[in-house]
Computed example of a mutant assay.
Amino acid sequence: MIGLVYAGGKSSRFGKDKATYRVPGLPATNVQLAVEKLTPLCQRIVVCANEINQAHIVKLVGQVPAVQIICDIPPYDCHGPLSAIIACTNQFSIAQDYLTLAVDYPYITKNSLAVLARTSSSYIATSQHNHYSLAHFSISNEQVTTWVDNNDDWRLRSFITNKCVCHPLTYRSSNEFSNLNYREVDLNEK
């Protein structure tokens, strides 16, 4: 299984790069936490960074065995998580199993990721939100690029539910599934 870490977002609402940010009270940066949680579950981990944070991410996790750091590839760049999926799948010649994790879920537990890893064609959901960036699916680069080229649909939700035919793996709502969107709110909640 390949772990895919979404770390290339602009973090415009958050105000700082989420991937390289260290949440007060947590032992490492968000990208380090994501890699550490995926390591026991995946043979290889691909971190999709952006041109701005790539060098910093290389310093943080570039020396970890089995970790590869990439950026989006033209002409499929700058379209969010689907750009990362295209760049990641481009590294492999055939379809692979992927376990995806966005860096803005620093509280997710290894246990929840392990259950997701054992449940193919799934994504994590709670009563409050569907977490499409926490997913497990099998896909090839050709399948992803054909989907985008034929549908011109860059929404992760559409891809996960319609193309990958993933089903919700339902959990109770908890802090574990909190998504870092606004730094002020997240800091005040802790």
Rank of each mutant, 00 (worst) to 15 (best):
A114Q: 13
F92V: 03
Y132H: 15
A117E: 04
W154P: 01
E142H: 06
C71W: 07
N90A: 15
T29N: 03
P27N: 14
R44N: 11
L180D: 07
K16Y: 05
Q143I: 03
P168M: 12
K190V: 06
R13I: 04
S138M: 06
P65D: 15
Y182I: 08
K163V: 02
D77T: 09
V165P: 00
Y132F: 15
M1V: 07
Y6M: 14
S178N: 08
H136G: 03
L38K: 02
A66W: 04
D152H: 12
A125K: 14
R155M: 12
P40C: 00
C78Q: 11
Y171R: 12
V46P: 00
V67Y: 00
Q128T: 11
K190G: 08
A84G: 12
V31T: 06
T145Y: 09
Q68N: 12
A95R: 01
D152R: 04
N175D: 13
S173F: 10
R157T: 14
S120W: 10
T39R: 14
P74T: 12
C42A: 08
V103H: 06
A114F: 03
E184F: 01
A84K: 08
Q96A: 05
N53T: 09
L169E: 05
E142K: 02
Y123V: 09
I160W: 10
L156C: 10
K59G: 01
V5S: 04
N175T: 09
G15M: 03
C48Y: 10
Y105F: 14
P168V: 15
D153I: 03
T29A: 04
L82Y: 01
A117D: 11
T126M: 10
K37R: 15
V67M: 05
R44G: 02
G8D: 07
N151R: 15
Y98C: 01
Q43R: 12
T29S: 05
T170V: 12
P81C: 15
V35T: 06
N150Y: 11
F159R: 11
R157I: 13
E189A: 01
V67A: 05
D152Q: 13
E184A: 08
E176M: 06
R44Q: 15
A55E: 06
A66R: 14
V61K: 03
L187M: 08
I45D: 04
I52S: 03
C42I: 00
F92R: 02
V46R: 06
A84V: 11
W154N: 04
Y132D: 04
D152Y: 03
Y171N: 11
I69K: 00
S93M: 08
N30F: 07
R157F: 10
P168S: 14
P168C: 15
A28T: 06
S174R: 01
S121I: 04
K190C: 02
E184Q: 06
N150A: 12
V35A: 01
C166N: 09
S173G: 07
